[in-house]
Amino acid sequence: MKALQFSRTGDLAALEVVELPTPVPAEGEVLVQVKAAGLNPSDVKNVLGRFPYTTLPRVPGRDFAGVVIQGPDDLMGKEVWGTGNKIGFSRDGSHAGYITLPASGVALKPSSLSFAQAASLGVPYTTAWDALERSRVDGQTRVLVIGANGAVGSAAIALAKVRGAQVLAAVRRPEQVHALDAQGFKAIALGKPEELAAQVAEVFQGGADVIFDTTGFWLPAAVQALAPFGRIAIIAAPVDGHVQLPALALYRKGGSVVGINSLLYGVEACARMLEQFGRLFDEGKLPLPEGLVETPIEEGLARYAEVNQGGADKVILIP
């Protein structure tokens, strides 16, 4: 089978298109013919050596959608999708023609999603779902999502809306504000960090109950924009991993910071998440992904480079 593989880390030149034997599923596993695989920034960081637990050589890739061709009778021939913390890191991932994983680690693909659409959602939607769950977002919550135009941010505002929350989206550019307004979301354009609290107060009197910063750069400002007993969810940090936290303001508000890391969840836990919001797609409660860039896996090296350079397109690799 055709696959992307790296045998060392440090730069993207380590990634190669190779021919590998089709993997053989172990007892209790399924063999999935990959029809589409998402390319996430974490896949690029994996090749660059940002994850110390990655073992080599390795086929990268976390998100996929495909068809079960070996496994338990009740899954044979079924269209499935999946993601999780080991695939692409300590076991071969989805940027290949086939993948094996535990049978309990796949979910049935929603019929409303194409293979490419399903493959685009794993990491963004499980991350957003986890952030909202652990920040206790419900119909009484006022939520601010910073970076709402990104993959995770877009998932977060869609899922928060389904939960009945009041949603405020924060983005950088005026045209992004207009696009979100057209989708029915209240949105603001981010300016100076010291202005964020006033911007939020114009929409949510007293501050936001939950602030989800998908960028890693707004934590100090988010504390000032937080309502009493509010929660701030974070999924990223500056390159050095450090940020100055106004602790006095945080504890005076009774606030808390919630770290969100999708790599804490195995394929089985992720499959249960996919099942839950997968039903929402089939019920027409979540927007279908658009603007995907489908590309043959043989062109994967160029697509990895584009993502590494900050390309905004959601790339889907097709074996």
Score class of each variant (00 low, 15 high):
Pro287Arg: 02
Glu175Trp: 12
Ala208Tyr: 01
Val267Asn: 08
Arg231Leu: 14
Glu283Ser: 09
Ala269Lys: 01
Val223Lys: 02
Leu248Phe: 14
Ser256Met: 06
Ala197Gln: 04
Leu274Met: 14
Gln244Asp: 15
Ala247Cys: 09
Thr215His: 09
Lys253Ser: 14
Asn261Asp: 15
Phe204Leu: 06
Leu245Asp: 07
Val210Leu: 05
Val243Trp: 02
Gly266Ala: 06
Ile232Asn: 02
Leu196Asn: 01
Leu226Pro: 00
Glu202Lys: 12
Gly207Glu: 03
Gln244Gly: 09
Ala222Ser: 15
Glu175Gly: 05
Pro238Gln: 13
Gly241Trp: 12
Phe185Leu: 12
Val223Tyr: 01
Gln244Lys: 14
Ala249Tyr: 01
Leu250Lys: 05
Gln199Asp: 01
Tyr251Val: 15
Met273Arg: 11
Gly230His: 04
Gly206Val: 11
Gln205Ser: 14
Phe277Trp: 14
Gln199Trp: 01
Thr215Cys: 11
Ile260Pro: 04
Leu264His: 07
Ala197Pro: 04
Gly230Ala: 04
Ala237Cys: 02
Leu180Phe: 05
Ala222Asp: 05
Ala233Gln: 01
Gly278Asn: 07
Leu288Asp: 05
Pro287Tyr: 08
Asn261Met: 07
Gln176Pro: 03
Pro193Arg: 11
Thr214Tyr: 01
Pro220Phe: 10
Leu292Ala: 02
Ser262Arg: 06
Gly207Ala: 08
Leu280Pro: 02
Leu263Val: 09
Arg279Lys: 13
Ala208Trp: 00
Lys285Tyr: 05
Trp218Gln: 04
Leu292Ile: 09
Glu194His: 14
Asp209Ser: 10
Asp209Phe: 05
Ile232Ala: 02
Gly284Ile: 08
Gln244Trp: 15
Arg231Trp: 10
Gly206His: 09
Gly266Tyr: 00
Lys253His: 05
Ile188Cys: 00
Glu283Arg: 08
Ala182Lys: 14
Tyr251Ser: 12
Val203Gln: 12
Gly241Arg: 10
Asp282Val: 04
Gln205Phe: 11
Ala198His: 13
Leu292Glu: 03
Leu196His: 03
Met273Tyr: 07
Arg279Leu: 13
Glu290Val: 10
Ser262Thr: 12
Leu219Tyr: 04
Gln224Gly: 13
Gln224Thr: 08
Ala249His: 05
Gly284Trp: 04
Asp209Val: 11
Leu190His: 03
Leu274Ala: 06
Val257Ala: 03
Phe212Lys: 02
Phe277His: 08
Gln199Thr: 02
Pro289Ala: 12
Ile232Val: 07
Gly291Leu: 09
Phe185Asn: 05
Gln276Phe: 03
Ala189Gln: 13
Thr295Pro: 02
Val239Thr: 14
Asp240Thr: 10
Gly284Lys: 08
Val267Gly: 01
Pro220Trp: 09
Leu219Gly: 01
Ala189Lys: 07
Lys192Ser: 15
Arg231Asn: 09
Phe204Asn: 00
Gln224Lys: 15
Glu290Cys: 05
Lys253Asn: 01
Ser256Tyr: 07
Ala225Asp: 03
Ala233Tyr: 07
Val267Gln: 13
Asp213Glu: 07
Gln205Tyr: 11
Phe217Ala: 14
Arg279Phe: 06
Phe204Gly: 03
His178Ile: 08
Ala198Leu: 13
